[in-house]
Amino acid sequence: MGLVGHRARVRTFHPRRGRMTGRHADALTRLWPRWGVAIPEAPTCRLDLVTLFGRRAPVVLEIGSGMGEATVEMATADPGRDYLAVDVHTPGVASLLAVVEERGLTNVRVGLGDAIMLLRHMLLPDSLGAVHAFFPDPWPKARHHKRRLFQPDHVALLRSRLAPGGTLRCATDWAEYAEVMLETLTADPGLVNEYEGYAPRLAARPVTKFEQRGVEAGREIFDLAFRRR
């Protein structure tokens, strides 16, 4: 898919600015036509995942992939599934594209834009094997809670795109948000908690620089694992 003009909409994310290195700018120019997925502000067509990846395999949607550290490690260790990593931060998208090329990964595609728009307008129901949302913005101020990813209508949308038996894995280092996430996911009638309360850390998820900063600041990490009925 061609790279189109992108103006981030403030929804469940903070728009961020950042400069790209020459290496990353080169990667974006060369690799976007091959592995990039543009998510317009007003999508008008569905995304064919079989065509996108060139095979029929379970697809993991990663929401907020950042610089792509977790995506690369998990996709490398999990060649039987395909990974669609989505972020609104262009330097992060470019960085991930560069590393995908360096590692020779064939099971990663990279989306630029609002994951909610992708879910709502571009992905079919029952089309995903898993959704990962690691360290979404906690939007700590009360007046911003409506922007959180984990609220009932967004969770219902996430669940509807999972195939039956598909999994939703998430993590946060914000204790108050962890409680909200657990309550909201538990309340969804189509999801089942795979553990009693919080889940053990997903072994395949690497410790990213972002997570390490939270640990060094003394924040506890909370993991959750739910499955679609």
Rank of each mutant, 00 (worst) to 15 (best):
M1Q: 08
L3E: 10
V4E: 13
G5S: 09
H6A: 12
H6E: 09
R7T: 15
R11Q: 13
F13R: 15
F13W: 05
H14M: 09
P15Q: 10
P15V: 09
R16I: 10
R19N: 12
M20Q: 15
G22A: 14
A25Y: 09
D26W: 04
D26Q: 15
A27R: 02
A27M: 06
L28S: 09
L28C: 06
R34E: 07
A38N: 08
I39L: 10
I39N: 01
T44Y: 05
L47M: 11
L49D: 03
V50C: 08
T51V: 12
F53H: 09
R55P: 07
A57Q: 11
V60D: 00
V60S: 00
E62F: 03
E62G: 05
G64T: 11
S65A: 15
G68D: 06
E69S: 08
E69T: 15
T71C: 10
V72W: 00
V72S: 05
V72A: 11
E73F: 03
M74C: 12
M74G: 05
A75S: 14
A77W: 05
D78S: 15
D78P: 04
G80R: 13
Y83L: 05
D87L: 08
D87V: 11
V88F: 05
V88R: 06
V88A: 11
H89P: 07
T90W: 11
P91V: 12
P91H: 13
A94K: 06
S95P: 07
A98R: 14
G104Q: 09
G104K: 07
N107C: 08
N107W: 07
V108N: 04
L118V: 14
R120C: 06
D126L: 04
L128P: 00
L128V: 04
L128W: 03
V131I: 15
P136E: 07
D137M: 12
W139Y: 10
P140D: 04
P140I: 02
A142P: 03
R143C: 10
H144S: 14
H144K: 08
K146W: 08
L149A: 07
L149M: 12
F150P: 00
F150Q: 02
Q151A: 13
Q151H: 11
D153A: 07
L158C: 05
P164Q: 02
P164S: 05
L168P: 00
R169M: 05
A171M: 11
T172K: 03
T172Y: 00
D173L: 09
W174S: 04
W174V: 01
A178R: 02
E179F: 02
V180R: 15
V180T: 15
L182F: 06
L182T: 05
E183Y: 06
A187N: 12
D188Q: 05
P189M: 04
L191I: 03
L191T: 01
E194N: 10
E194I: 01
Y195A: 11
E196D: 14
Y198K: 03
A199Q: 07
A199Y: 04
P200D: 09
P200H: 10
R201W: 13
A203G: 10
A204N: 06
P206V: 13
V207A: 12
E211I: 11
Q212P: 05
E216S: 12
E216V: 03
F222C: 02
R227E: 08
R227W: 04
R229S: 07
